[in-house]
């Protein structure tokens, strides 16, 4: 039985790109080998996927959005959407109950890249 496979999608988030940049600079300075950098990125995939799951409860917020769907694409089990004139609402429920913290943002263009939830951490 092989180890669980984790998506690499979160590497594109700021927390991932900054890690990749930091690893790159260590490789450039010849302080580490690229193979080690790859292992660290795999560690990152696992850590962030696990932490985002509800049981661990750091990310509790709910986000809703409404807009004009401009482009949709489904390829290799990955959905990509480009939505225009979006109103995004984030409900921060981290202060459990006392005060729901609603925030709204308007964005004229927004891209969503989503992997299939059913495969995450499985296989």
């Amino acid at each position: 039985m092989s180890a669980p496979v984790y998506y690499e999608i979160y590497r594109r988030a700021t927390i991932g790109t900054t890690l990749a940049d930091a690893l790159d600079s260590l490789i450039t300075d010849q302080q580490i080998q690229p193979q080690l950098a790859n292992k660290i990125l795999n560690n990152f995939d696992r850590v962030i996927s696990d932490l985002l799951k509800s049981e661990l409860g750091i990310a509790k917020s709910k986000l809703t959005f409404k807009g004009d769907l401009h482009t949709y694409r489904f390829c290799d089990d990955v959905w990509t959407f480009i939505i225009k004139n979006v109103l995004i609402k984030l409900t921060d429920v981290s202060n459990s109950g006392d005060m729901l913290n609603d925030n709204e943002l308007s964005v004229d263009r927004f891209k969503i890249v989503a992997c299939n939830a059913r495969k995450a951490g499985e296989l």
């Binding site: 985002l52 509800s54 750091i58 990310a59 509790k60 917020s61 709910k62 986000l63 809703t64 959005f65 409404k66 807009g67 004009d68 769907l69 959407f81 939505i83 984030l90 969503i112």
Partner: peptide, 10 residues
């Protein structure tokens, strides 16, 4: 921003 759930109608 991080979120647990998100939904959208477009």
């Amino acid at each position: 921003y991080v979120f647990q759930k998100a939904s959208g109608e477009n």
